[in-house]
């Protein structure tokens, strides 16, 4: 039983990272109806920026290094994503929906290859947090797991407050319900789109750093699998729906952990996750909390 709970906590840890990344997919989809496939590279970029910041600030005492790494990784990703949006998606705003999607895949390939040219194998990510186990009731939780859960939950609460309690969040929701009508009641839609990319990427960058702190190594293609899982999580929760992405991430992480607990080989984890994706697409394409797709069109 304790083992099962430990597995579940492992699942929740990974799931909260998926959720952070899934939010980026879902917010962009909510406004542009576009799957931003470059988002998994934002995740990777966050990890590399965080790594660079940690190496540069090695000599700083206490928590300063990791704090700076988060700031650099998150802001850097935000700026990168806004730049990508302006360069690769904004010119295609009136093009058929497939065009920005292909553009996103292109951006993804460019970013991966740019990093690949510089470094094509694993880089060790500094393990900032000592590997101590903290007893929680009858189970053990590692410090880094606590950090991951704490950081992602805080970020999600902040996002929730932003979306629901601020005027810019209100404008964002208006854009995601009817972009044209929003523009006609005086909302600068292009700025709201940039802001959406920025926020999604800030969360994605943070997720990249958390993920690297957990696994201890980074690589140019590290975004692919977590990116696909986060996309699955977003679809599971109902793409375009913010609470849905959070729920989807946590559910997917837990389901994966449970799957590994009962299946003989942990390699089956990914099969499990993508099996879920296929099942949702067949039986409930709008996801758990998603609206009927007709509303969106």
């Amino acid at each position: 039983m304790a083992n099962l709970i430990e597995q579940l906590l492992n699942g929740l840890t990974l799931g909260s990272i998926y959720a952070l990344v899934a939010l980026g997919y879902t917010m962009v989809y909510g406004i542009l109806l576009m799957i931003n496939f470059a988002h998994s590279e934002i995740f990777m970029a966050g990890a590399f920026l965080g790594w660079a910041a940690l190496i540069i600030t090695r000599s700083l005492p206490g928590p300063w290094g990791i704090l700076i790494a988060f700031v650099v990784g998150m802001l850097g990703c935000g700026i990168l994503a806004v730049g990508i949006e302006k360069a690769a998606y904004a010119p295609l705003r009136r093009a058929p929906r497939l065009a920005p999607l292909i553009s996103a895949i292109g951006v993804s390939i460019i970013l991966q290859n740019a990093v690949f040219l510089w470094r094509n194998d694993f880089l060790a990510f500094p393990l900032v947090f000592p590997q101590v186990q903290i007893p929680v009731g009858s189970v053990q939780l590692s410090l880094i797991q606590l950090v991951i859960l704490g950081t992602s939950v805080s970020l999600m609460i902040l996002l929730w407050l932003f979306v629901n309690k601020t005027r810019l969040g209100q404008a964002m929701r208006a854009c995601s319900q009817d972009r044209e009508a929003a523009e006609l009641v005086g909302i600068p839609v292009d700025r709201i789109i940039s802001m959406t990319f920025f926020i999604g990427a800030v969360l994605g960058g943070a997720a990249g750093i958390l993920f690297s702190l957990y696994y201890g190594s980074i690589k140019y293609n590290m975004g692919f699998v977590p990116g696909m899982k986060a996309f699955t999580a977003a679809v599971l929760g109902g793409i375009g729906n913010v609470p849905g992405a959070m729920l989807g991430g946590v559910l997917l992480g837990s389901a994966e952990a449970m799957g590994t607990a009962f299946l003989p080989e942990s390699d089956w984890k990914d099969v499990f996750a993508f099996g879920i994706l296929i099942l949702i697409l067949i039986f409930r394409p709008r996801g758990i909390l998603g609206e009927k797709t007709a509303d969106k069109v």
């Binding site: 005027r167 209100q170 929701r173 208006a174 319900q177 009817d178 009641v185 005086g186 909302i187």
Partner: peptide, 17 residues
Amino acid sequence: LFNNMTVLENVMVGRHC
């Protein structure tokens, strides 16, 4: 309208500009 938002929020969005 922004169908999923409240009546008041719909009008508030109009004030944004």
